[in-house]
Design a binder for these strands. Structure first.
Lengths: 195, 195
DNA sequence: GTCTATAGTGCGATAGAC
DNA sequence: GTCTATCGCACTATAGAC
């Protein structure tokens, strides 16, 4: 794997960083490619050298963020007698990432409602995100720890709770370190799923 | 309350209907005011007679939808010994509306990520939507039926589960009448909240 | 790879007749 | 209230020099 020269990577990364900032503050459609280039300190045409279109830029940013998130989640060797504790660690890692990277989390929500990207592409990227969760649910079901609801329904429910919980903490930064709130968040998730 | 002549109301309503259809299929930003007028069978300028701007049209549509939803939820005189059953009825009414009015529900999700409308305005409209839920939670907490988590956290969590559940059913229409799925959806919600 | 300059397009909103 | 016609602007993407 040949590493690109820093100079090359640099402007491309600056464009991605600026795009994220502006997208989150103004919305994707309301952010012009020209303003992204200006914010990144590069020329207008340079953006289209690195990304063939605005849509491609959005997709590249989306993929890089989902990859960043996936790296944050460190899977365990699942054990039945401490599954709840393991679930809490995974859950907390996910929440932690979303709160620290509130802008990235916000952008992902925007992308989910961005019609210029096909649902197919978005679903594909999203499926890779929570690949670990179905394993955990299936394991818990086989050991009679987790309720036998339909798998996809549970995955979607978990995703919904993840979004609402991380947004809640993002909107109330003073509560991020509050154990009462952090435990309440996980308890709701876990109780919904456990037998 | 003086009723407007049908003719007057008609074109305005046609514009709102066409806007909803096009917004959901193409996204709000990607839908031009001209295409809305054309789809509604009225002239371009007529749209700006009824709505001073595109933004005002979006807001009017949003408000009318939230009002429509609120009318669907019929509150109960809460009783401690049948609170779960009452919660299920309210929950099912909400899910029912969202599935039947999938386009309206979808549009509301788009609005939540629509930066042209101020967060303040959106929050105000949203607060009126689920006004009944805090009452139910508070009642359940005082009768030791519902867990003592922070109120706003529970409201947000319920909203998140409502969105993910209704989307799940919308994406799997054949399951809408399936009692197994319908009960699993409510059980996850209720278990998350109950003591 | 990066720049400047601009082509080409489509949009929101207005003006004014009926 | 509804129409036609159009203005002015901002945007994506390209062309071509360096």
């Amino acid at each position: 794997m040949k590493t690109q020269t820093p100079a090359r990577t640099n402007k491309k990364q600056q464009l991605l960083d600026s795009a994220l900032t502006l997208f989150v503050n103004q919305g994707i459609d309301a952010t012009s490619t020209a303003s992204i280039a200006k914010h990144a300190g590069v020329a207008n045409g340079t953006l289209f050298h690195h990304f063939p279109s605005k849509e491609a830029l959005v997709l590249a940013l989306y993929k890089s963020i989902k990859q960043d998130f996936a790296l944050q989640i460190k899977p365990f060797q699942l054990e039945a007698n401490q599954l709840k504790q393991q679930a809490k660690q995974v859950w907390d890692q996910a929440i932690e990432w979303a709160v620290i990277n509130a802008d990235k989390q916000q952008f992902c929500l925007q992308v989910s409602q961005y019609h210029q990207l096909s649902s197919q592409v978005k679903a594909q990227v999203l499926a890779e995100e929570f690949g670990y969760l179905p394993l955990l649910i299936d394991f818990g079901q086989r050991h009679n720890i987790i309720a036998n609801y339909p798998l996809q329904l549970m995955v979607d429910n978990a995703h919904g709770q993840f979004i609402s919980s991380s947004m809640y903490l993002t909107n109330h930064p003073e509560l991020v370190q509050d154990t009462l709130h952090r435990e309440a968040i996980f308890e709701m998730f876990w109780k919904a799923f456990s037998l």
